[in-house]
Design a protein around this nucleic acid. Structure first.
Lengths: 338, 338
DNA sequence: ACCTGTTATGTTAGCGCTAACATCGTGACG
DNA sequence: CGTCACGATGTTAGCGCTAACATAACAGGT
């Protein structure tokens, strides 16, 4: 007859106490064998390991969290879950937390400071051990909640100069400048900047764009929309661009979604890229290297931003000394579209 | 002078007991005022609400989970976090769980049954209240763990006939058949099927493809790769296709990533789409409607699959009667590429 | 006046785990 | 051979919350 798994009567789960009872030892010893094996004698440790496996014991995180005042949760607030950029960031965070047995709680702020505030409020009840935020722009109440929580916070995507803050990202301004300089170097002179979803990073890229134009004594041509960014919107924006600035010979799109949409619309209308109009994007999405022509873009280290931010946060949680600002840079991917 | 927030000495957090103490009532009454307000007199309820707000009390989920044996967590296992398909599914789940105060725990199985097993094992310690799985294909140990856990499980993407299971999805076979019939209707006769990342859904679509060809007495031409699917791979596969089946006049790609890659490669080589080669994809990704020509595809209700699966799971968790299989269908998006 | 039922609140105990402090050997050393 | 240090294990208590069972107060019916 098969062995019966003893189950704690109350909840039907196998608990530490069940394992301890089976071996006629105390629960704390089992606990130690799992958390700090070196503090249990090898013989007993081995017996415990076997019993754990045989009974199918699985530690209960809620109980552990309650006893240790450590939840193993990290709150991650991102502005979008459909944007490839943040999906990659989440991937990096995930891969860094996983081996430490920690868990992400993901909140989607939909590019809204108000929504960010609400998410933060709701998630604080999960007693996260730390918080990963996107960008530097936050509402006063968000900042107050963060300060009150006294939890370590790491900001992703942008860089923060403040001494008491932590951030992992890149200079969006420098990247915008690099792309514009590239277009100038390639001989374009009437360069437009097109932006949707006016978030802070989009604005910083625009600053870089203006700086580069100023260096070369060129005029700016900008189109700003508040609509959420998408490939479809890129098509619309090409129309807008040709209407407002018919003379322009290059366009720097604030992200690759818009750039791809513009490229497709150019193909549709028979506008030669890059002969009649050069296109530059931002983020270097997976598909951008494969369009025809391939899209010139700024590759951002999204996965690594997530990873390093998570690592920095874990260091902070463990009160370890660690650098507080990490500039992971960017790479200009000069391709056929310019 | 500003009021001091009383804090529980042990962990520095404001607890139920702190709120109760401030009002000189018992903790359970505060608990009731929050969970079942109708069981507390209106006057007291109001005072409690105020005190809660003023002290900044935030319920501790770990303690609640421990006391109620309900974690409020739902485990979600998906094969990929970069694939737009699953990102959309997760969005639907998120939106359904959020208002119930429940939380997703996301595990990435990387299209591996072995990995799925490991993830499941690790996450069972979080004591999820239910599990959302992708697809019907699972390792024996995964099935054993699921059975042993006695947790409600809902399968997403595919449909399950078994009476004791729950599933929300669509007939991948029927969808594959619909696409192939469409190509036949449009006059194509030498239709190829190209697949990467040979997961079960890819295989079911192929079955539909073969069935449709058989109906019309046409021959199958298939190319299978185990490599993970990507836009870049689509370009490679076009080369492969032209080499292996130079006569083919239409290609049904197992997903839109491949289809887009093929389209771009056709543009690059000057192969006319759809005149020389028609292209059909699967999933109808956001960009597919905007390429030139726009991509014919099968639109799958990914967001709704996530939503309905989450809803079905919640019903099961609450022991409510509910349908156990939900076919959300698909839509053929006939566009310029065919 | 008594019982009954109902509503509002309180008491007790326990969910599963671990921190902090015992306790009990055992061997090293003077 | 006593003392001390140290390693291995145990005891106790409590993390924050809520289920389950009191208790109290009061209205209404007989």
């Amino acid at each position: 007859m098969a062995e019966r798994k003893p189950r704690n009567s109350a909840t039907g789960r196998v608990t530490l106490a069940d394992v301890a009872r089976a071996l006629d030892i105390s629960a704390i010893t089992v606990s130690r064998a799992l958390k700090t094996p070196e503090r249990v004698s090898p013989v007993l440790r081995e017996r415990i390991t076997q019993a754990v496996r045989q009974l199918g014991y699985r530690p209960n995180h809620a109980a552990r969290a309650l006893a240790t005042a450590r939840s193993g949760n990290v709150l991650v607030l991102v502005p979008s879950l459909t944007n490839e950029v943040f999906v990659d960031v989440l991937g990096g965070i995930h891969d860094e937390l996983q081996p430490r047995g920690m868990q992400m709680l993901i909140g989607n702020t939909h590019y809204s400071l108000r929504e960010e505030e609400k998410q933060l409020e709701a998630f604080l009840g999960h007693a996260p051990d730390g918080i990963l935020l996107s960008g530097l722009d936050h509402s006063p109440r968000t900042q107050a909640l963060l300060a009150e929580s006294r939890l370590p916070v790491v900001t992703m995507m942008e860089l923060d100069n403040a001494a008491d803050s932590r951030s992992v990202g890149l200079s969006q301004r420098a990247a915008g400048q690099a792309m514009t300089r590239h277009l100038i170097t390639r001989g374009y002179r009437r360069i437009a900047y097109v932006a949707a979803q006016g978030d802070p990073r989009t604005r910083q890229r625009a600053e870089g764009y203006r700086a580069a134009l100023a260096e070369a004594n060129l005029d700016a041509r900008e189109i700003w929309l508040e609509t959420p960014s998408s490939v479809g919107l890129g098509a619309t924006l090409l129309t807008e661009l040709l209407a407002q600035h018919p003379d322009c010979d290059a366009v720097f799109c604030c992200n690759d979604d818009l750039a791809q949409g513009m490229l497709y619309e150019c193909q549709r209308r028979g506008i030669a890229v890059p002969a009649r109009l050069a296109i530059g994007g931002f983020n270097d999405l997976a598909a951008s290297a494969w369009t025809h022509p391939a899209l010139t873009s700024i590759a951002t280290p999204r996965y690594d931003i997530g990873r390093q931010a998570a690592r920095m946060l874990c260091a902070a949680i463990d009160n370890q000394e660690a650098p507080r600002a990490l500039d992971l840079g960017f790479t200009l991917m000069a391709r056929g579209s310019s």
